[in-house]
């Protein structure tokens, strides 16, 4: 195999890794104030892609306006999910891990409704303004500007999320809620507002991931579950709650997947990734970064 081929595989691995990292980060955003892993998060990526197809390709809206609408719609659905599927269970301690079932149920409803509405065929979505899907060659490196855009947007958005938690009072308040819900309330912080906000933002962020990834992977209703799993793998490798870890984990998953595509069929690739994650969880249960979860259940 030539250097060019390896580099091309790496570029596509890093690009997909950036997408997986964004999914992982959206899982983190919803997890922080609630300790709930939103299993519908992958479907919000799917919705972002499908909405983008409907608005930009169907209605021919310009990219920025279309994206803005997608984010608003996905945010509203995220809020709806929080109210319907999460808040009632968090309010009742007897439900234990009831949210696993309820968020999964929500994702099933979203997925199958989308199947009805959009059909199951893959659709094309326009690239980010200024980028294109045409291949550019620089030395041994071949890539498209859309791939570059995805990588840059992923890095920038993760930096923005980290800045939010580290440097804004609201961000710190989310961390405070994560640590001690009642303690936060006694300091005037409303866990309810922050939880709703986090779910809306996480859904919008996932949808944004869908908008920028769709030109590369094509928009179809079946991408959500796959992205949820890959995002989870990135999260498991990087450590729960660790956004930069998620980026590294996503890159690792993307590159393993992409490089193994040379000799392995899709089935073997999935088995290989699953084996890597299982082995890692056995050796380092809290991810490569090793940040301990606050509490095991």
């Amino acid at each position: 195999m030539s250097l060019e081929d390896i580099l091309a595989l790496l570029v596509s691995g890093v690009t997909m890794g950036a997408v997986y990292a964004m999914v992982a980060v959206s899982l983190n955003i919803a997890f922080k104030p609630t300790n709930v892993f939103n299993l519908a998060q992958g479907e919000f990526v799917m919705l972002g892609a499908m909405f983008a197809w409907g608005l930009m390709t169907g209605w021919s809206l310009p990219w920025l306006a279309g994206t803005a609408l997608v984010l608003v719609a996905a945010g509203a659905l995220g809020l709806l999910e929080e109210r319907l599927a999460v808040a009632p269970l968090l309010a009742n301690a007897r439900h234990h891990h009831g949210w696993i079932i309820s968020t999964l149920a929500f994702s099933i409803v979203v997925l199958h409704t989308s199947d009805r509405v959009y059909g199951t065929d893959p659709q094309a979505v326009p690239p980010v303004p200024g980028a294109s899907l045409d291949m550019v060659q620089i030395g041994a490196l071949t890539f498209s500007t859309q791939q570059v855009a995805v990588i840059v947007l992923a890095a920038l958005s993760i930096a923005a999320v980290e800045w939010f938690y580290r440097s804004t009072l609201v961000g710190k308040a989310v961390l405070a809620v994560a640590e001690d819900r009642d303690g936060a309330r006694l300091n005037g912080i409303s866990p309810l507002t922050l939880t709703m906000g986090s779910f809306a933002v996480a859904a919008a962020y996932s949808a944004f991931t869908g908008v920028i990834a769709a030109p590369l992977v094509l928009a179809s209703t079946s991408i959500g579950m796959m992205l949820l799993v890959k995002g989870f793998m990135a999260l498991a490798i990087g450590g729960v709650g660790n956004n930069w870890g998620a980026l590294a984990g996503g890159m690792l998953v993307g590159c393993v997947e992409s490089l193994s595509s040379v000799s392995a069929t899709p089935g073997y690739r999935q088995v290989l990734l699953l084996a890597v994650v299982l082995a890692l969880l056995l050796v380092r249960p809290h991810g490569l970064a090793g940040a301990r979860l606050t509490r095991e259940v």
Binding site: K172, E179, R185, L186, N187, G188, I189
Partner: peptide, 29 residues
């Protein structure tokens, strides 16, 4: 809390993972 009633709960209920300065800031949230 916004109406002027503050309750310092039992057992030193601070945000242990945040910095001291951030803890004080969070008091003014």
């Amino acid at each position: 809390v916004g109406r002027g009633l503050s309750h310092v709960a039992e057992g030193r209920r601070i945000f242990r993972k945040e910095s001291v300065a951030d803890n004080i800031q969070l008091g003014m949230y």
